[in-house]
Every structure is written in C-alpha cells, then in structure tokens.
Nucleic acid binder design. Structure first.
Length: 422
DNA sequence: TCTGGGGTCCTAGGACCC
DNA sequence: TCTGGGGTCCTAGGACCC
C-alpha cells in the first residue's frame, strides 16, 4: 500500500484564474484578509521575486511597477473549488483524507509492476480537464514521505508534477536536495536546531541518531524521523474527526478604542461561531473572548476572558449573552485594539449532549429555538451572510475587513457567473 | 497608516485529591 | 529539624500546519 499526497498548485491563484481568463498569462498574487499580506502567488509572480507572507503595503509599489495583478482572498470561491476537487479525487482513489483546502492524502495499492505513474498521469489530466486546475502528486510509504515526494514533484521540472519515492532511480540524492526547512513538520525552531548540528537536509535528518532527536523534541521528533524512514506512524483516514475547538477572529481595518465597538466585533464573531457550531452539529461548554493590539505595536496588549456555560449550547442568543458579559474584562481604553476573537471550547456533539435537570427552555420552547436557528442559517446561507442580522452587531465599517481587490462570487452566486463572449 | 485566520498536538507545571 | 507518593485535571505555552 502506498500513500499519495495530492494538492493543487498555487491553489488560490489558480482558482482566481479559472474564473477570470484575463488573469491567465499574468503574474498574480492573492492577499490575506484585510489585504494584509501575500498568501498565494502564481509561478510568474514567484519568478518576479514575490515571497509568501510579505506585507502588501511594503511591496505595493514594486507590484505596481512589475504589473502584477492583485486579488483579495475570496474564500467562497476557494471553498467551492475545493469541494469540486475533492469530489473528483474521491472518485479516483481508494481512500481519501481531505487534509486542507487544497490537499488530500490518498491510499493506493501498488500494481504488480510497481508503477503508479500511469494512474497519476491520468488523474492529473482528469482534474485539469474538469476544473482547469493543475495538481501535484507525491507518493511514498508514509504521509511524511508522500509530503516530501510532493515537494520533489514541484521542484524537479522533469517529473511533470509526479514523484514516486518508491519507484525512482536515485531517491537518496533527491532527499539530500531537500532543505531541512522544507520537511513537513519541521518549522523555524527545529530547523535552526538542526542547522546548528550540521543537519541540513531531509536525508541527514532521517539518518541522524534518534536519541538526539528524542531528547530535544520528544515523540513528535521521533515520529517525524520514522515517517521519513518510511515507517508509517500517521494513518490515513476519511473519517471526519469532531473539532475540539472552533475559533472566529479578525483583525480590524482600523484600530478601535471604544468598548461599544469591541462589543459589536465580539458579537459578530459569536454569531459566526455559533453558526459554525450548528453546522458541525456541536455545542460549546466554554467560551473565551480575546482582544489585542497589533503584534507590531510598541506596547503589546492582549487580554482574554473565559466563561463556562451551565448548559452546553449552540444557540446564538445564549452564546451572545454569555460572551458579551466578558467584553469589559478584555477592553482597555488606552490601547489601540487591532484584533479580537472568540474561541468555543469544550465541544460536544449532538449524540453525547447531556440533558440537565434545569433545562434552559421547556421542550416546546427548545424546539422553537432550534427551528429559529435553522431558519436563520438557511436564509443566510442562501442569500448571503448578513441577510438576517443581530442588532447588537452594529454597522461599523471599521470592523469589516478591507478587500479592495475582491473577485466575483463566480461559482456560488448566480448573478456573478462569468460571461463568455462567443 | 498598513504585517491573516483557523486549527492540532504535546508538555510542563499548578491545583487538587486521597 | 523533620514535611510522601501517586494520581487526575486543567491551563498556558511552544511548535507546527495550511
């Protein structure tokens, strides 16, 4: 059994190009919420030296000078394209684990001749034909190897987006060519630690004494190493695992200094988080709200406050009541607050919801409330997020994100479908 | 002036219990 | 002066991912 990692190349940028043909052949970057920094770019923009994570305001002039196109992130579009991609992959793989918006692990049986290239090539063709998206496929004996192979599929131009660590001539050299920073699971800190010990690439990490790794990085480090050695420690599973927490947070487009504004912001996030809970079929037992200055502020300020609910809930008005009471505890009038959020924790599913002697509502009321929430969710889903609003959320523009370069909801809104002139 | 958002897993240490 | 041992639960913080 082999494991493949399949992902969309430059996914966000590619999605933008599929719905706007004028972007094809152009260098393109996609910005984060609030048009903060670069979170995706296509090959052309990369060649022009645009890096991931660069703050937009720092490179705006350069981007204009180089005539690079810019888009604000459009998650409705990416989410929808992702669903289509995953549905297609499911058809072509034995077992599929959706790992992120543009990635999935797949289990595949190796054919007797050990050659999976034919399967992979066919899959790439199908996806391109149906969605206009390019994918890369990495194959190995474990998730770690599959990730590594996927990296090689992208960086070795003569492999046409497919790399099978279990069926190539010289995997050792390829491994030695993967910088330690590019290994899945190795971030800034572990990489720094490795470099200091002259462990500079994936091969050296795989072969270093495991006791050394164990002593510093514990089970996580050991697991990483074993995965690279081809010993599978992380299983591939298509089961949806219930979330342990759910968070909604945003940066503001301008700093806020009034408690009323903070209250509105928290209210908006609670409304979104409650809808998320209902979609996931979960109820929260604990709510944390937080507010902070910009991470780059001269004096950093950050406060959080937590409350435990008497009864688990996913009813927006119940959660609003509990969380708004916490706002005073996190507000500070002399700090320019730039970001706030709410975290729902201690989540339980429909199936293991404990009944309580002192139920909040009578059975009849409870059923009414549930019906009300479902109706609100449906209306908002169908006609857009703010169709039914809670008055407490207010109308302040500061709290909404800045998205100057937003593309159309081309796949999720009938009125915005791209028009093709024959 | 402007620097994203939403997650997971693991560990250490404190509080508390018997 | 002496001041146990073993366990659980919770939280904060570190590290990482896309």
């Amino acid at each position: 059994m082999a494991i493949a990692l399949i992902d969309g190349n430059n996914f966000y940028a590619a999605c933008e190009q599929t719905v706007d043909p004028s972007l094809i052949d152009q260098a393109l970057v996609v910005l984060s919420n609030n048009d903060g920094c670069v979170i995706a770019r296509n090959a052309k923009a990369r060649c022009l030296g645009i890096l991931m994570g660069q703050p937009y305001f720092k490179i705006r002039h350069e981007i204009e000078r180089l005539n690079i196109k810019v888009r604000s992130s459009n998650y409705a579009l990416y989410g929808d394209m992702s669903q289509r991609l995953m549905a297609l992959l499911e058809k072509h793989c034995e077992e599929l684990e959706v790992y992120s918006i543009d990635e999935a692990f797949a289990k595949i049986n190796r054919p007797p001749n050990n050659n999976l290239r034919t399967w992979a090539r066919q899959l790439r063709e199908n996806i391109y034909q149906d969605l206009g998206l390019q994918i890369s496929i990495g194959i190995g004996a474990s998730k770690g190897q599959a990730k590594l192979a996927n990296h090689l599929a992208k960086t070795m131009p003569n492999h046409a987006g497919i790399y099978d660590l279990g069926n190539v001539k010289d995997p050792e050299t390829a491994l030695a060519n993967v910088a330690i920073e590019d290994v899945w699971g190795i971030g800034k800190n572990i990489a720094q630690w490795c470099r200091a010990r002259r462990i500079n690439n994936a091969k050296q990490f795989r072969d270093m004494p495991s006791q050394t790794i164990q002593a510093k990085w514990g089970v996580i480090g050991i697991r990483l190493q074993k995965e690279l050695q081809g010993l599978s420690c992380l299983s591939v599973s298509n089961k949806k695992i219930a979330k342990q927490e759910t968070c909604v947070s945003r940066s503001f487009s301008k700093p806020i200094t009034e408690i009323e504004e903070l209250r509105q912001a928290i209210a908006r996030y609670v409304v979104l988080a409650s809808a998320k809970l209902r979609k996931q079929g979960q109820y929260a037992g604990t709510i944390t709200v937080f507010a902070r200055t910009s991470a780059f502020a001269s004096i950093f300020y950050s406060r959080s406050a937590t409350t435990h609910l008497d009864l688990y809930s996913n009813d927006t008005s119940v959660l609003l009541k509990s969380s708004l009471g916490l706002t005073e505890r996190i507000f500070h009038p002399h700090h320019l607050l730039m970001k706030a959020g709410v975290v729902m924790k201690n989540l339980v599913g429909d199936d293991c919801l404990q009944l309580h002697l002192l139920e909040r509502y009578s059975p009849k009321e409870a059923s009414h409330r549930k019906h009300l929430m479902t109706t609100i969710d449906r209306l908002n889903q169908r006609y857009g997020n703010d169709t039914v609003k809670w008055a407490i959320c207010g109308t302040s523009k500061k709290l909404g994100p800045q998205r100057k370069y937003l593309s159309a909801a081309a796949t999720t809104r009938l009125a915005e479908i791209p028009v093709v002139n024959a």
